[in-house]
Amino acid sequence: MNATKTKKFAMAYIVDRCVDCKACMVACKAEWQIPDNDFRTHIDTGIAPAATDRLSMHFLPHQCNHCDDAPCVTVCPTKASHKREDGVVDIDNRKCVGCRYCIPSCPYNARFFNNELGVADKCTFCLPRIYDGLMPACVTTCPGKARVFGDINDPESEISKALKDAADNRYRVWTLRKDLGTEPNIYYIQK
């Protein structure tokens, strides 16, 4: 009954709209001052094998999936990595010892080591921003409008609408590595 009260943040990528411009990667880097060559979100470019007669190329964004059963949370010895009420998997920088164990534990290659802070780092769905009434930095900047974000428990949110639209139109919707049972919260939508 109270289900509507708890938020559950999630993101969807409308794959057809992503053009691999990497604006999201840089916006995020700026927002979080991510050092070195690291990013909190990435775009994979996939090229269909040469054998097919019709060339095709796909762009798949990815970042932390804010898994409901997150391996990174399980393996974190200090509980710095934790799952919040609102669905966000966050890292408490004050607690992280920097043991790096969570980095290979993540099946989505979402984590990296922040050499400036000496802690593990990853997407936080732009935590303070989203409570300031803004969208995450990557969503805000995405020129292709490929990224949709919101509270999946709120039927009026952008993401709920996008997922409903996808279901109504029978678009393909999937999450990554379902087989691992991590219950990720990032959806891929493709026409």
Partner: peptide, 9 residues
Amino acid sequence: GKLCAKGNA
């Protein structure tokens, strides 16, 4: 409302 990678940099 949008900026590209260069713009963000």
